[in-house]
C-alpha cells in the first residue's frame, strides 16, 4: 500500500516559539553547537490505488494539512 509522509513546518520568516524553547533546553544540556531548532508536524497517510498520488497529496496539503499563510510543506510517497 502506498504511503505518503508529509512534513509541515512554520515558514522560516515566522518565530517558532516552541523551537526556541527547545533550542534553549538543548543548550542547557550542553549541546553548544545547536544553532537552530524548528518544530513541525509529521503526518502519515496510507493510500489506496495508484493514479497521480503526488497531485492528490499536494492537493491535500494545500486544502487542509498546511496553512499557506504560516506553514510550508513537503512530502514523499513510498510505494
Amino acid at each position: 500500500m502506498p504511503k505518503a509522509n508529509v512534513y509541515i513546518t512554520l515558514k522560516p520568516s515566522l518565530l517558532d516559539a516552541q523551537g526556541k524553547v527547545v533550542q534553549g533546553a538543548l543548550e542547557k544540556l550542553g549541546y553548544t553547537n545547536v544553532s537552530a531548532v524548528r518544530i513541525g508536524k509529521y503526518i502519515q497517510i496510507e493510500l489506496e490505488g495508484d493514479g497521480d498520488l503526488e497531485q492528490q497529496v499536494d492537493d491535500m496539503c494545500r486544502k487542509l494539512l498546511a496553512n499557506p499563510v504560516i506553514e510550508d510543506y513537503r512530502f514523499e510517497i513510498e510505494r
Partner: peptide, 17 residues
C-alpha cells in the same frame, strides 16, 4: 474565519506557549 479566508492572516500559538 481566518482558515476559511473570510479574514486575512492566521492565529499562531501564543508566544508564551
Amino acid at each position: 474565519l481566518c482558515e476559511a479566508h473570510l479574514l486575512p492572516g492566521a492565529l499562531l500559538a501564543n508566544n508564551t506557549l
